[in-house]
Amino acid sequence: MSSSAFHKAFKEITFDSPLQYVKKIRLNKAGYFMSQQSMKAYMAADKIGYESPSQFSREFKRYIGRSPA
């Protein structure tokens, strides 16, 4: 399967590109860490692989609708 065919098939099933899908999974996981495990936002960002807490904060707010703090 070509890369473009994979992306098209993936988007038909998930309604997101592979990158968007992975980002949503990571941000949901960070939300879980912060709400269920009382983890600080910068620690959750680091745990899911973000190097920049400010980038994490922007993307979290864009996806979840509120700041991670």
Rank of each mutant, 00 (worst) to 15 (best):
S3Y: 04
A45Y: 12
K23Q: 15
R66I: 08
F60D: 01
A69S: 11
A5N: 07
Y50F: 15
S52I: 00
D16E: 15
A5S: 10
F60A: 00
Y42G: 03
F10A: 06
H7W: 02
H7S: 09
R62A: 13
R66A: 13
F33M: 12
A45C: 10
Y21P: 05
K24P: 02
M34P: 04
Q36I: 03
T14Y: 04
Y32W: 13
F10S: 02
L19A: 13
S2G: 10
F56A: 07
D16Y: 04
E12Q: 15
M1A: 03
G65R: 12
Q20F: 01
R26N: 09
S67R: 12
Y42K: 15
T14I: 10
F15D: 04
D46H: 02
Y63A: 01
A41F: 12
D16A: 03
A30N: 08
Y21I: 08
F56R: 04
M39Q: 10
E12I: 11
S38N: 11
G49H: 12
Q55S: 09
A44C: 08
F15K: 14
Q20M: 12
S52T: 07
I25Q: 15
M34R: 07
P53H: 12
S57M: 08
K23G: 06
M39N: 02
Y50H: 10
G31T: 05
G49E: 09
A45H: 06
R26G: 00
Y21E: 12
Y32S: 12
A44W: 02
K61S: 03
S67H: 06
E12A: 15
M43S: 11
F33Q: 03
Y63E: 01
R62C: 01
K40L: 13
